[in-house]
Computed example of a mutant assay.
Amino acid sequence: MRANYAATLACILALTACGGSGSGGSGSGGSGSDGLLENPRTFDTSAFTSARVTKIVDGDTVDVSIDGDADTVRLVGVDTPETSGSNTPSEYDNALTEAHLREWGNRAADWLGQVIPEGAHIFLEFDSNEGRRGSFGRLLAYIYTEDGVLIGRQLLKQGYARAYTEGDAIRESIYSSLEQRARDQCEGLWGPLCEGDGAEYSCSSSPNCGQIGSCQEARFRLTQCGQESLDGDNDGVPCESICE
């Protein structure tokens, strides 16, 4: 999983089409297979608000400067796991543990900081259904990089986020499809769900790593049974002697 994480990050930073991501480069334009425009330069950029990144707050929130004024942008349509405070496993079908979600919240924030680091020029697109600001006073917007990468789309495709369906975003249906695709392909935070169906295991006992016969079983017990003692260093990988 860690190798995949590094590889997909490198691909996004290089803006290359690898792993079937469907991302267009800065000169490609056009739409992706999911119908989302890849490059803001293919349409009138006057419809966007230009901003500079001043700080990555977490995987779905960014502090920005707009014409010299400080503001905070909450990405529309996506929700990455919390990096501070508690996560809600029920938002992820109760299939992933708090520790696993927190790890991937940190990974999402790290990824975002690589793609749009401090000082990066970005484009903001507002959603007419959501309005410009949310209940916490933050701007609600889609973010594009200067090279045309739609951040929310990539967070979903790489498995860093779930589709936020509690709002009224115009792209909710497309984003939900991207989440489902990431689940089906075992991307990112959804990886443990693909380690077998666990039918042969039970949560009625709590064996230690020395008593567990496979990485598949270890992941099942961590993610499905909540046996966090199997992940001593809290990195989301259980029983590292067998889950290398």
Rank of each mutant, 00 (worst) to 15 (best):
R2V: 12
A3W: 07
T8P: 00
L9S: 02
A10V: 05
A10Q: 10
A10H: 06
L13A: 14
L15V: 15
T16G: 13
G19W: 09
G22S: 06
S23V: 13
G24D: 03
G25I: 02
S26G: 12
S26A: 15
G29H: 10
G29S: 11
S31C: 07
S31I: 11
S31V: 11
G32D: 14
D34I: 01
L37I: 07
L37K: 08
N39T: 04
N39F: 03
F43A: 07
T49C: 02
S50K: 14
A51P: 00
R52P: 00
V53H: 02
I56V: 07
V57R: 03
V62P: 06
V64H: 03
V64S: 02
G68H: 07
G68C: 02
D69H: 12
D69K: 15
R74M: 08
V76Q: 08
G77N: 05
G77D: 10
G77M: 10
S84F: 13
G85E: 09
G85A: 08
N87F: 12
T88V: 14
P89T: 10
P89I: 08
S90G: 05
S90T: 12
E98L: 04
A99C: 04
A99W: 01
L101P: 01
E103N: 10
R107K: 14
L112F: 09
H121Q: 15
I122T: 11
I122W: 10
E125T: 05
D127T: 08
N129D: 06
E130I: 04
E130W: 04
R132Q: 12
S135W: 07
F136T: 08
L140S: 01
Y144P: 01
Y144H: 07
D147F: 04
D147K: 06
V149E: 08
V149D: 00
V149P: 00
L150I: 00
L150C: 01
G152R: 01
G152Q: 13
Q154N: 07
L155Q: 05
K157R: 15
G159M: 00
Y160F: 10
A163N: 00
E166G: 09
G167T: 10
D168N: 15
A169I: 00
A169M: 03
I170Y: 12
R171N: 09
S173D: 14
I174T: 15
S177Q: 14
D184K: 09
D184Y: 07
C186E: 03
E187N: 13
E187D: 12
E187Y: 10
E187C: 03
E187A: 13
G188Y: 06
L189M: 15
W190A: 04
P192S: 04
C194S: 12
E195P: 01
G196K: 06
G196L: 03
D197I: 07
G198D: 01
A199N: 14
A199Y: 05
E200T: 10
Y201T: 02
S202L: 02
S205V: 09
S205N: 13
S206N: 11
P207N: 02
N208Y: 09
C209R: 14
G210S: 13
Q211T: 09
Q211H: 05
G213T: 15
S214V: 06
Q216M: 08
A218C: 04
A218F: 09
F220L: 07
L222R: 08
T223D: 15
C225I: 02
G226A: 07
Q227R: 01
S229V: 08
S229G: 11
D231F: 02
G232T: 13
D233W: 05
N234Q: 14
P238H: 10
C243F: 10
C243R: 04
